[in-house]
């Protein structure tokens, strides 16, 4: 009976676990981001890219400069001179200086805060999005994106990636041609391989920004689980000892 009970629980758990990927894979057909937030150098490179190319428009309103320093292994001076270009104080959060009204005029919408973007959209989405900009003269700012069609955002990293153009397939009658693939028409400062690495770092930085606790969560978790496993074993021995009475009384 016990065996059957255990196997039925295992089956139920298996069913539950089997359904996890169904919800987890929000964006289908996306290349895996392959980020590693435990790689501090990657986070530092990502932060550098963020503060050079993104913070002009996007805030990280839940992230403080001081927290960045301690989590990314940087000194206050390094953060204040290399990352903080807005004149904010060390303990203040990362707020973009772009006026909201101007943003609406220029892009048609207010650039969203990116503090939780990695948790809301997933890291794969961000990584693929950053790699999928292409020139599209029909769009107001001249850019389009295959991962997020008709995005209002131009490619901020074009000088690194170069200019991508779309190769369209045959258009079905009465429909617009589908983008088959993207190709670099004008090379940028980075090779395609280097650019993928750079966007991976940037994605990792946003993943960290979305949940700074993730840095310590797992390393604490290992000890907690080891402790609980040991405790469970001791409790089992305790139970075994007490239950000798019960088994004798048969």
């Amino acid at each position: 009976m016990i065996k059957r009970t255990i196997s039925s629980i295992a089956l139920a758990l298996g069913l539950a676990v089997a359904t996890i990927p169904a919800l987890a894979s929000e964006g289908e057909g996306l290349a895996p981001a392959g980020t590693n937030i435990r790689d501090q150098a990657s986070l530092q490179r990502g932060a550098k890219l963020f503060f050079n190319y993104c913070v002009g428009c996007h805030s990280l309103k839940y992230v403080r400069y001081s927290r960045l320093a301690s989590d990314l292994g940087l000194s206050e001076e390094e953060v204040m001179t290399n990352l903080n270009f807005t004149g904010a104080k060390f303990g203040e959060p990362v707020i973009s200086h772009m006026p909201a009204d101007d943003a609406k005029t220029w892009f048609g919408k207010d650039p969203p805060d990116l503090s939780l973007e990695a948790r809301a959209k997933g890291v794969d989405f961000i990584f693929n999005y950053l790699n999928s900009f292409y020139l599209d003269p029909t769009r107001p700012v001249g850019w389009n994106n295959t991962v997020f069609p008709n995005a209002s955002m131009p490619n901020p990293l074009w000088e690194l990636q170069g200019l991508q153009t779309a190769v369209h397939g045959e258009a079905a009658p009465g429909q617009e041609a589908v983008v088959e693939k993207l190709q670099i028409s004008t090379p940028g400062r980075m090779s395609p391989e280097e650019f993928r690495g750079a966007t991976r770092d940037l994605t990792a930085f946003l993943e960290y920004a979305a949940e700074p606790a993730a840095l310590e969560r797992q390393s604490i978790g290992v000890w907690v689980i080891l402790f609980l496993a040991g405790l469970t074993f001791l409790l089992y021995l305790l139970k075994h000892e007490y239950w000798k009475d019960v088994h004798e009384s048969h």
């Binding site: 359904t19 996890i20 990927p21 919800l23 987890a24 929000e26 948790r119 969560r217 797992q218 604490i220 978790g221 290992v222 907690v224 689980i225 609980l228 496993a229 405790l231 469970t232 074993f233 409790l235 089992y236 305790l238 139970k239 007490y242 239950w243 009475d245 019960v246």
Partner: peptide
């Protein structure tokens, strides 16, 4: 007898719960 037996269950349960809390708190969006 059942308090010590239930404690073993508590130990098992907390270990599983800790795994979720520390390693998969969103549980894949569930």
């Amino acid at each position: 007898y059942y308090t010590v037996k239930d404690l073993v269950g508590v130990g098992f349960f907390l270990t599983i719960a800790a795994f979720i809390i520390f390693f998969a708190p969103t549980f894949g969006g569930w």
